Computed example of a mutant assay.
Amino acid sequence: MSVDGSAHAPRRMPTMRDVAEQASVSPMTVSRVLHEDPRVSSTTRDRVLAAVDALGYRRNEVARNLRLGSKSGLIGLVVTNLANPFYSQFALGVEAIAGANGLRVVLTNTDEDPERERVLVEELSARRIDGMIVVPSGADHSHLDPLAPGGVPVVLGARPPSGLPLDCVLVDDFGGARSATAALLAGGHTRVGFLGLPPSVWTSSERFRGFCVALEEAGVRLESRYVRVSQRTIPAAEEAARALLSLRRPPTALFCANSRNTLGAFRAMSQVAPSTALAGFDDFELADVLGVPLIVAAYDPRELGRTAMELLLRRMSDEDPPLEPRRIVVPATVVHYGG
């Protein structure tokens, strides 16, 4: 509101055309002045610069860099699900290192759609970004080839490359799931359920593999009726957990492949079988105040983001001969909450 109580609409950013009108010249003349064209007279230059100051006009440096073929100072970050808290923390890690190096991050979301990912990657490349960090949603990574026309340096996060020599930073999905499941089994449980994402998701398949190996090492047979692998949301996980806990011989413990499945399982347990033991992959806020014993395979998503950005800076250094691709695995540590 203004001093006299009237409302004002948000101020529109001035354009080059606005500057041209203010200075009574053409937009092309404004452009020539801003690009320090010596053919523009000093009188016209002074008039245009006065209009720039009066209007508070700022050049679109990204567009300017694109025209000049210069670096944009932008990094693309492509993730699969912004609703997942993991990705906000991952992005903060990327941004911390990017910002410290004078770069800005453009964040996009694929919603686990490989075709949408392909389109977003093409659009980012068309903007001549300096590099890209991608959490791939499918198994075909051909559109990420940095040697293709228009290609840029690429680092993969959370999932490894397929058919391309790309840098990547991963979580120890297998080892973390194996250790957390082993902790459940050490408590005497022989009927253990699994809640996870579809096996086509690399992280889910690795965590399921760790779960299975832990069962095998403890001499416990895997029962397919205790496995549910299609839950992407907390309500879906709650419904799947409720179905498992309502079986005639329900599992006495549940291992959940990510935090959304853990929270869904907790909701179902609190209503159906509160004595069920619970373990999950991914730490999350307030995990320590749920009021039940909880085992978590924990790691630092920001560390993943920081490491991914450091790998990208290394890849953007244009070393000759090309650097060998690196694969860095961040460990997962088993944490016990509650009683």
Rank of each mutant, 00 (worst) to 15 (best):
G264C: 04
P331R: 04
E21C: 02
G157K: 12
R314H: 10
V3S: 10
A54P: 01
F208V: 02
D283Y: 12
L124H: 08
V329R: 12
G176A: 11
S317M: 11
N65G: 15
F211H: 11
G193N: 06
V94W: 11
V94E: 08
A218V: 11
L74W: 08
G151Q: 05
L107N: 05
S230Q: 13
L290T: 15
A257Y: 01
L222H: 13
R59V: 01
T44M: 03
M28N: 02
G264A: 02
A50N: 01
G99Y: 07
V229C: 14
C168F: 00
R225D: 10
V272D: 01
V3G: 05
L144R: 09
A51W: 04
L120P: 06
P114C: 04
L195F: 09
V25Q: 08
Q271S: 14
A7M: 12
H143D: 11
S162F: 09
P27F: 05
S72I: 10
W202N: 03
R315T: 15
L304N: 04
N84R: 04
T262Y: 01
A126N: 13
R249V: 13
P199L: 13
L244G: 02
L77Q: 01
A96E: 13
M269H: 04
D37V: 03
R232C: 03
G99V: 06
R207P: 12
S31A: 14
A279L: 02
A332F: 12
D145T: 10
P293K: 09
L184Y: 04
L244Q: 03
G73W: 12
V152G: 12
D288F: 02
A91D: 03
G102R: 04
C212I: 00
P165A: 14
P165L: 09
E206W: 07
E122W: 00
P235D: 06
R228M: 02
R248W: 03
P136D: 14
V106P: 05
P301I: 12
D53R: 14
L197E: 13
E223A: 14
G188E: 02
D282F: 11
T233I: 06
S6F: 05
S2P: 01
V135P: 03
A83R: 15
R207E: 13
E36W: 00
L34E: 06
S41G: 13
A23W: 04
S125W: 08
D37W: 05
S200D: 14
P293G: 15
R12Q: 15
A186I: 07
V135S: 11
L215N: 11
R127L: 15
E310Q: 15
R12A: 15
R267T: 01
G291S: 11
D4M: 12
I75A: 09
S137C: 02
S72Y: 13
P250T: 07
R64F: 05
R242L: 07
P293M: 02
I129K: 08
A126D: 14
R232D: 11
R45E: 05
D320H: 13
L195A: 08
E303N: 01
R209A: 15
N60S: 10
S41L: 07
A279V: 05
R118W: 04
D130K: 07
N84G: 08
A177P: 06
F90P: 03
P235I: 03
H336Y: 00
R326Q: 15
S230K: 05
A183C: 07
L103N: 00
